[in-house]
Design a binder for these strands. Sequence first.
DNA 1: TATTTTGTGTAGATCGGTCTACGTTTGTCT
DNA 2: AGACAAACGTAGACCGATCTACACAAAATA
Lengths: 342, 342
Amino acid sequence: MTEQLKRATISDVADHAGVSRAAVSKVLRNAYGVSPAMRTKVEESMALLNYRPLALARGMRGNSYTLGVFLVDLSNTFFSVLAEGIRDVAEELGYQVLIGQARQGLEAQQKLIEAMVDRRMDGLLLIAPFGPNEELEKLGRSIPVVVLGRHGPAKHFDTVASDDIAGSALIVDHLVSLGHERISMLANTQPDSEPGMPQTVRRHGYDQAMEKHGLARYIDHVPGRWGTESGLEAGRSLAARPLAQRPSALHGGADVSALGAYTALFEAGIHIPDDMSIVGYDNIPATGLPPIGLSTVDQSGVQMGRQAAELLLSRIEGRTHSEHVLVPPRLIVRKTSAPPRR
Amino acid sequence: MTEQLKRATISDVADHAGVSRAAVSKVLRNAYGVSPAMRTKVEESMALLNYRPLALARGMRGNSYTLGVFLVDLSNTFFSVLAEGIRDVAEELGYQVLIGQARQGLEAQQKLIEAMVDRRMDGLLLIAPFGPNEELEKLGRSIPVVVLGRHGPAKHFDTVASDDIAGSALIVDHLVSLGHERISMLANTQPDSEPGMPQTVRRHGYDQAMEKHGLARYIDHVPGRWGTESGLEAGRSLAARPLAQRPSALHGGADVSALGAYTALFEAGIHIPDDMSIVGYDNIPATGLPPIGLSTVDQSGVQMGRQAAELLLSRIEGRTHSEHVLVPPRLIVRKTSAPPRR
DNA sequence: TATTTTGTGTAGATCGGTCTACGTTTGTCT
DNA sequence: AGACAAACGTAGACCGATCTACACAAAATA
């Protein structure tokens, strides 16, 4: 009935154009040693036969023209913004971006990365991976790698991150200028935190900024991880504190956890920002919804994504020394931060 | 210095175990004709050499053990929930899920799907694709396909969708029971809408339910597409209407557009739910944030994802007749729906 | 005992590209 | 004109698996 058309291969094109397969391959790769006459002849045949090279087969020897993006959490919409920037740059250069999501846990992460390597991705973009830096260094020696959201230095991979020290300072400065002193932070005390991870750096930034303002005695890390769930718990624990020990303002660590805390505090009858100010970090879309209007720090996800993709592509083309980019953050004041009432 | 270890291939394993490559391949595929003795011998060698088959190479002849998930909008967090369900099922059976995001537009979608085919994905899961059904039928004849969020019937692919007729009825019934009569709907009037698309079906469901309640005269489709932007515009247009022609309740079509409309109405000084009730559809995470508390319809994304993955895998294993699954929706009443004030 | 069946293992083609090595033609420089 | 290099094309190995066809031995049947 409806014939299943066989897909044209490079041999079909070669036969049709009356040249060798190698010649067609050269045209495909824009390689050296092709006369204009042959090029047009081959290109006509390709168009006529509706030929598309099989990326899979190309990957056997050459490039697969595929970049892998590793994500832990698809529901963190900030990551999806990053992915957009990555894709834009990659597509311009004929690379396809495929995203893999790992479930929580180091082992699952490892498995996904292996799966991407096994599919001969030309390079890997890791967004907020866990695990020790040495693991990443090892990976970086076997395949081009750019890590998003972890700070350098690193020898065998590039990094792109928000300047989290500056970002935390932005938050603390803002709150202090409003008159706050007792400022806590949702601190993401995951057990396997590494030096360059944003949770570590943002915490340092917070500590430093507090000290700078002479508020070292109020430094207070509310433990947890970053995620809505954990934010909810942290919010409940704050609500449960006696009033005297409750902070008047909160550095949320990340928007997802800040919103979680917001939710729990709201439900406990603590009004934001009258009873407590909250500032998040990431500027994810949900923060902009007007009834919430979470004050936050923006790190221009699309720009970071583009940067990262550019680094990865230049690494694929042969660069070996590593580069480390810091993106300056920007404070966005909305409705969850105000002077303290007490 | 640090030696770059060469990856073990099937030949290395074969040599080490003293058998043929074909034998190793059989062990790998759990194929027939392997003695227990040989199996253990080979498995030992594989473990010792730290061997992992190259998925890329396997794909040249057999399966690539890769499923492609096609998405238009990563920031619609409902889709990320779907992806989770898909991944869970796929991984149990040794398949890797890779997600591709297309930018808006039919052409970009087509390109991404081709890219996935060119990478020899074993099957494709399309989440809310655009385009005519015939295109999908054509695709379904060349590769196993399951479409999420489009209703059947279809001959060459399976579908999994929320029962959007029932879902719309749930919304209208709820609003009518609260006393509303003038109920409008954000209708997604995209130019290239096809019969089975959720926007079409939900609109029909709304029309039917309105008629059922004898409210046909109040049927009102606010035009736009589904997305935050378009929701904002729709909200503004509603706010601009003279009070007499303004609905007292709104079927938001999808959560993202409902939240957009909410935002615009809120900014125009129209209070929700006192001045207008709004009910969304999809139950994305942001709807649960308490200061918003959007009433909505839940369609159990994880479950839908699992269903879809199971269908795809059974199709990969040879099933040819198509199946069409409808998932029953569930109303979630939160804070944006209340009796009309007038 | 001769013949068939069943179970195990292997050789070698194959998938669709890329890449190296080399041959042929053409152009340039003494 | 002869020597040499540059430009263009091709043959055939190669990437790492799968898959078909077949050889061989042991077990079952006649």
